[in-house]
Design a binder for these strands. Structure first.
Lengths: 213, 213, 213, 213
DNA sequence: TCCTAAGCGAGACGGTACGTCTTGTCTTCCA
DNA sequence: TGGAAGACAAGACGTACCGTCTCGCTTAGGA
């Protein structure tokens, strides 16, 4: 979930922070400690098994400090998600520049997503296994925005017997999440490209038929 | 703690049936009380918000009695799943009797599943919303068995560039679950038949292409 | 607690039993099973650690059967105490036959008591250690009757500065119980005679002074 | 779980006192609330009938807070015993200053003990009645230390036919406890001085004979 | 350079749910 | 029909977390 080394900006804090000017190096250090602790403990024991108490002990941070920054365990984890969203949005925009009907245009961010997952495989496995349901739901919700955006742009005029747009968006998002979890849990040997190919063979034709028919 | 040294004196000759039957009457009543309580409370407050204490209070059952029958809240809910599984298996077998390549043969149990969901719409909505993630996971796992069974039977010889069977099974199951949740949460006006149609238009062609070449 | 092999009569039952004619061999067998189970489990794990559930499981008896015979764990244990009381009463009567002021006359049952304890040392240790407080209290209460009886008979006319009779009885009984427990827990090598001697040296002179002044 | 890597930076130089003091104020208030609740409830319903739930409800304290301070109901009650022990030790030391063989020297703390009991008569009655066996056992154990200490100091060289020291200590302690319970339960009209007198007349001569030959 | 407010550690606290345990009652079956 | 088996309600137990809170220390930015 950490992009490169600039794991700084974590906007999902409780308090607007006001960011006086230098945005408190101390604050940043604390938040990074907590985030790192969450990741490490999740990898070791699974997301569900980690308690707030574990996190603050591992991060050597006071309990009240934790709650001063995040609403809870999930808040902390979710704070890392915005980075991913920005990353995918960028790829989506790039794909939109491709010529109409070119094969990689529709859902063009998918390969970037699988690449991302590939570089955090252990974390996703940990989330998938031990009930990080809520986190996956948030990822799903984020993907949902992307897909809706794309289909809204691409769609030809709606016909009466069309599949409802929401159903298609839903189908695509869950297929993505499903693919990710299956990859991480069951078949970790595949390359991101292979996984992307599987995904596209299963999903894209149906979506094309349903929306661009 | 092991009873039964005397009970085992006469191993299987007498009547292990009649004794069981009568005792079961009370047991069944208790279990039904608990199950009904769980459903009612889940509908009212959401699955996650219901505690074991709530359930036993509502069912007027002792705490130890609850744990004598079920491992926990989830165990109780899961106990209702076996009936559904049997129901679906029956429909699957019926569909298999249809001629090869007829349209409703593949995943023939899907309409039965959506019919079932239709008659428990509120419950599924409650499960979907408030984090019955684990329960949906169990339903998914049950569906997984059905789908795996069917694809194993239907599949032509495997080719090297085939999509791995597991990926397809995974894709189908999650599409089913996804469809169910979307239906219950977002678009409750559709009929089961319409939902089934959407599902089949999105999923079946890809599956046919992937498995039946 | 079991005298010889005739461990039969257990009068402290809940129901008068009515003893139709053959006095239900089954009932007796059940009661013996329970009593034996209690003793064995008490020796193994200590009195407090044994639950009714353990007893009936070990005796292979149904729960309701247990409560049909005894009011609880204590009731069962206490049912063995009457035999001891009769035994001691007999010795007390024998000692009373001795000439006035002979050394062994006062509290003449003490040696019989210590002899009894000697033959059930393990049980008393188990009772003393793990809080068989209530049982020791019952033994104490039984001894109390004996001592009160004896002092009432032996006492010269009461004087104003006498120690209250109840205080003396109390003192003697607790000294006996105290001695028993100390013997079993701390110093199991002493013979019954030695223990009796210690007891008499510590207690009898004071009692004689207080009552026979 | 070990905090203190930062807190230990400045080992013992600053002020480990002030910090503790303030924090203790709240702690002390909580502990006193709990102790008071225990006493009040014990007086009202008897020691055994009081559950941890009752105590925390009456003290308006969280369950976990209770267990953070005490191991259980007994632990809470026992926490009040240390004060008594210190009190008695002081009296013992004062008595030791008396001339050899003066009447009040041996077991000189006894009157202080009975005075103490006198001022908590209701509590001791409640403990004695309803099975505060374990608590009385702890009091006994505390007295045991005092007596052992005293006899060890006072004793002349041991002779072969001496009563074992442990037996004497045991005898004295149980006589004290016995006297206390008898007083509280059976004869509450006596003054502490009278009770002390009874105790001393019954016990001290024998002890003197056994130990000071 | 001092002062002041914020960040922070430490952890006490009230609360809630958990799963286990034991008790004594009550129903049902069997001989 | 009376004794045995065991399902059951009741509720205490000790544990685990949670999210709130109070308390001083420390530290850095503005006066």
């Amino acid at each position: 979930m950490r992009y490169g080394t600039t794991a700084a900006r974590i906007p999902e804090t409780r308090r607007p922070v006001k960011t006086k000017k230098k945005a408190d190096r101390r604050v940043r250090r604390t938040q990074q400690s907590l985030y790192r602790a969450l990741l490490e403990l999740t990898l070791k024991h699974g997301y569900e098994a980690v308690s707030v108490g574990d996190i603050i002990a591992h991060a050597d941070v006071g309990r009240s400090t934790f709650y001063a920054h995040y609403a809870g365990k999930e808040g902390l984890l979710l704070s890392g998600l915005n980075l991913l969203r920005d990353h995918l949005l960028e790829h989506q925009r790039a794909a939109q520049a491709a010529p109409e009907n070119s094969p990689g245009r529709l859902l063009g961010f998918s390969s970037a997503l699988f690449e991302h997952v590939d570089s955090h495989r252990d974390l996703y496995r940990a989330l998938g296994q031990s009930g990080g349901g809520l986190v996956m739901a948030r990822i799903r919700s984020m993907l949902s925005d992307l897909v809706r955006l794309e289909l809204a742009a691409a769609r030809r005029p709606e016909r009466s017997d069309d599949i409802p747009r929401g159903a298609v968006v839903n189908f695509v998002c869950d297929a993505l999440v499903s693919q990710i979890l299956w990859w991480c849990e069951k078949n970790p040997r595949l390359t991101p490209a292979e996984v992307d190919s599987i995904f596209r063979r299963l999903v894209v034709p149906s979506v094309r038929a349903a929306c661009l028919g």
